[in-house]
Design a protein around this nucleic acid. Structure first.
Lengths: 421, 421
DNA sequence: AAGTAGCGGTCAAAGGTCGA
DNA sequence: CTCGACCTTTGACCGCTACT
């Protein structure tokens, strides 16, 4: 326990390799691919080898620092994964799929080079280096991983944009055609504005629902424009994808980014919240949507402890729906291809973080959330049409453009009607 | 914690290290820099961590000895400091670790394997036995694989039943409650009847659609009764699952088992077929369903060359939808568990047959068909309701029971209206 | 031949547990 | 409530192997 507090003041990045990325203690070199200290290195290895699963006593957001790195093993392990420690670099206890023999336990005798029979690969390196199937990626796989990394990086900007005070005064078409703010270096480097106060909550009013939906839509549009395949689509196809996700994208965002105020509460960044209580002034059918969000989205996301990177991938997978209405037949294929690229990269990401066994289970559960998304998309499309038909909801021009594909007027942009919450 | 025992030269040092410098009890090693016993070690830590301050009842000169070390906490703590215990060696609170007594309970969850039954094993499995990693499947995994194998075996009977001339004259409720024909040894051993002649095709008429839908429903019911978790459900939950899949189960069956007459044709076993041609006599909305079946189900099933075993798993995964309407809350969890068991077993099956790389891609694509299924389920539920409302379709009593949950009449069974094709 | 980076293993010494 | 026998967890240090 070296008590020596490192002078963190040196902003020199070249020293970064000497600091443990997990706990900021002095690093003793690269371990499992990450500059880290002996403690975090050993902790990571032990956790994986013993297949331990921890639970955070709080809300899974504990800060990990040298002085308190032992306080929450769940968050410490999550931090290890977050900074990129690679469980495939752990040698014992290998991937159960590509069966490799291990020669541990009692005899250190390595005379039994052949060990047990089954040796699938032509070359069997006796003592396994962490190479092989893991680091050897094809060019295609690397491209897929780059795509996923881009999604992850953008996702890390989403909350910043969501909490910010930006005002978009564009029509839907203009917003779709403009360059994404997520690709604007000035925005990327801007600091996160102080989070809203989540301690003072108040029930959401109609104005809150409208305000936040339109805000999430703008975020969805800015986000979509960062996806390579999306940029290449015709305007009509872009709008078709946006329309398909118009209901579910805000729902996913709101479920994932709400602070944990219990299993029945979803909070908007301004402190407005809703829960299971009925709200008679809202159109019928929206109560059902609330239950679906709480039971079928929020709960599994929480239970699975979906991390932001998995969430980034899931959002894109469900958004890039080649079966969405009104897509031109020619564009379905490239969309499906990109979707497959993301699923493949997501799977590799999960294997790296969770191991192949848990990854398969987790991957399946996450993809099956697609059924929930699809159900909500269809049901709410119906409900929205009905609500509009009976004029229960006064949709803004922006909303009508998005939900119903109302033709854009020749020249003037229809400004977003921002409702002050 | 390199001990760096400084005893090198001291003659009697070897003896002193075995004695607690605080109370002269046997020491258990160095604690906080001083050879000390467990009691004094723990006492010192507790005192520091709880920031306790003691007062001596006498004059602060109490002797501390093993027999009376608890008599005066003030003087005991002073003695700790005097012999050199280092308060800087006290660390922060750590994460709680749970039970440590081996005579109590089973370890803190995580291993769902032996969750059933009482069986607290004398030896806690929590300890490290790094075995089981490679070829060895856990008992849980083996149970999952057995479940999948059962589904596969039943699936191999489906076409036999579908092509047979069986006539079910039962009401929905009776069919649900009876024993599955798939579990009847007599049926299992019966030979497959000669397949229908798929060379002579004719366009399907309304009667064909009705006939085959009701027939697929009967097959669905017989099939569902072979799923262990399904058997345990209440009648209402059984009906809820059947209702959810009432549209999509026949669609999946028809897509998978149709002979390949080109990408736009689906053939029933009696030679009746349909394709993309509009059929004005059918209700609006059914044309859309046909396109969905051809484009979103038949095409991917063909493109992926889904085999019958994968199909068996997929059917069950989509059928066991824990989010289906009207399910009781308590039954959602066991359904989700079984669904996860099947997905896991399916993944292992794919890895075995295709290798881990292709398996991940294939597994993802197959599970994402769930979005198609969910979309069709919801849309057709709407369409069916509308169709019934406008009486465009004369639903049979059996169909009404299934689709709308019409109450079963007290005694008489409502016979299936078998339309001769 | 010697050096180094990064694996896994080790065990003294931390902290946690729970019946007495 | 405190005590302390007994337990788990931690991490500085070590040996090992592959690759310079």
């Amino acid at each position: 326990m070296a008590t020596s507090v490192p002078d963190a003041g040196t902003s020199n990045g070249s020293q970064a390799e000497e600091i443990c990325l997990v706990c900021n203690d002095f690093s003793t070199g690269y371990h499992y691919g990450v500059p880290s200290c002996n403690g975090c290195k050993t902790f990571f290895r032990r956790t994986i080898m013993k297949k331990q699963v921890f639970a955070c006593q709080y809300n899974g957001t504990c800060t990990i620092d040298k002085s308190i790195r032992c306080a929450c093993r769940h968050c410490r392990f999550e931090k290890c994964l977050k900074v990129g420690m690679d469980r495939n670099a752990i040698q014992q206890n290998r991937d159960p799929i590509g069966y490799t023999k291990r020669t541990r336990r009692y005899p250190p005798a390595k005379t039994l080079t052949a060990s047990m029979g089954v040796s699938p690969p032509a070359i069997v390196p006796q003592s396994q280096s962490p190479q092989q199937s893991v680091n050897e990626l094809t060019a295609e796989q690397m491209a897929e991983d780059v795509l996923l990394q881009t999604l992850m990086q953008v996702e890390n900007q989403v909350e910043k944009l969501r909490n910010s005070n930006f005002v978009m005064q564009k029509s839907l078409i203009e917003a779709v055609l403009a360059t994404s703010i997520f690709l604007d270096p000035q925005f990327i480097e801007s600091p996160m504005e102080p989070a809203h106060n989540y301690d003072i909550l108040r029930p959401a009013k109609m104005a809150d629902y409208h305000y936040w939906h339109e805000r999430e839509w703008v975020i969805m549009i800015e986000w979509a424009k960062t996806i390579p395949v999306y940029k290449e689509l015709d305007l009509a196809d872009k709008l078709a994808l946006l329309r398909y996700s118009a209901i579910t994208y805000p729902a996913m965002i709101q479920c994932f980014y709400t602070p944990d105020k219990g299993p029945d509460t979803i909070v908007f960044p301004n402190g407005a919240y809703f829960d299971r209580n009925p709200e008679p002034e809202r159109p019928a059918g929206f109560q059902r949507k609330k239950f679906q969000m709480l039971d079928n989205l929020l709960k599994p996301l929480r239970d699975m402890r979906v991390d932001i990177n998995e969430f980034a991938a899931a959002k894109a997978i469900f958004f890039l729906n080649p079966d969405a209405d009104d897509l031109q037949p020619d564009t379905r294929h490239p969309i499906a291809e990109t979707r497959a690229s993301i699923t493949n990269a997501l799977y590799r990401y999960m294997v790296k973080r969770r191991g192949s066994e848990e990854a398969a289970d987790r991957y399946g559960k996450l993809l099956l959330l697609g059924t929930v998304i699809a159900t909500m998309a269809v049901e709410m499309k119906e409900a929205v049409v009905v609500a509009d038909f009976f004029e229960q909801v006064k949709f803004s021009p922006f909303a009508k453009e998005l939900l119903f594909g109302v033709k854009h007027e020749a020249n003037g942009g229809t400004p977003i009607s921002v409702v002050t919450p």
